[in-house]
Computed example of a mutant assay.
Amino acid sequence: MHGKLKPKGPALTRLHVRVKSPHSTRGRLVGGGVDLAATIGRSGLSVLKREGDGASPRGGFRIVGGFYRPDRFGSRPRAGILLVPLRPDDGWCDDPSDGNYNRPVRCPYPRSHEAMWRDDHAYDVVLVLDFNLRPRIRGGGSAIFFHLAHADGRPTAGCMALKRADMLKLLPRLSARTTIFFG
């Protein structure tokens, strides 16, 4: 069952991720006429986010950019923010000891990183939230992405995810002024 979303409407400035308890991995993304099923990190919510803990951070975070897989869409998805085409060699550094920690990198990359070009469709659309970007705290957790839900419904590694159809309906109402509040 898909949630409720007004297909057209004003740009959204505030969305909230609501979960039943801090340990829940499933909740709702709500605000401005939006009410959608959302999945978060396998460890639920955390005030003290650490690299690799599987938690989604409590707090409010703006959308600072986004990517899409051009081979999975006939054209760039309609969005209120700029979506940049991903390339097969795109990655994201998650090694706290590396100078590029929590930054995009080109693969192959010699240090620990996450491939952005994935087979599982999770990053067919992926938005970057402004968690631990400026200033970066080493070990404080790398990127918190807003991406597509896994087909099997499993929790994320700390990000937030929506079903593809819900994300595509929501994208036109998002902007660089949209803040997503966890908790």
Rank of each mutant, 00 (worst) to 15 (best):
P77T: 05
R78A: 15
R78Q: 12
A79Q: 05
A79Y: 06
A79G: 10
A79E: 09
A79V: 04
A79D: 10
G80K: 04
I81H: 11
L82E: 14
L82D: 07
L83V: 08
L83A: 02
L83G: 07
L86K: 15
L86H: 08
R87T: 14
P88W: 14
P88G: 09
D89E: 14
D89S: 09
D89G: 03
D89Y: 03
D90K: 08
D90C: 13
D90S: 13
D90R: 11
G91A: 05
G91T: 06
G91Y: 10
W92N: 01
W92C: 13
C93L: 06
C93A: 08
C93D: 13
C93T: 00
D94H: 11
D94V: 15
D94I: 04
D95R: 00
D95K: 07
D95N: 04
D95I: 08
D95A: 15
P96G: 10
P96N: 10
S97L: 14
D98K: 00
D98A: 14
D98Y: 01
D98P: 07
D98L: 01
D98C: 15
G99I: 05
G99P: 15
G99R: 15
N100P: 04
R103S: 14
P104M: 15
P104A: 13
P104V: 11
V105Q: 05
V105R: 12
V105A: 03
V105D: 11
R106L: 13
C107V: 12
C107E: 14
P108L: 12
P108I: 08
P108V: 08
Y109A: 02
P110M: 03
P110Y: 06
R111T: 02
R111W: 08
S112D: 13
S112K: 12
H113W: 01
H113R: 12
A115Q: 09
A115H: 08
M116V: 08
M116F: 05
M116H: 02
W117A: 03
D119I: 00
D119E: 13
D119Y: 04
H121I: 02
H121V: 01
A122V: 12
A122H: 03
Y123R: 01
Y123S: 01
Y123P: 04
D124S: 11
V125I: 14
V125F: 09
V125R: 04
V126N: 00
V126W: 01
L127F: 08
V128I: 15
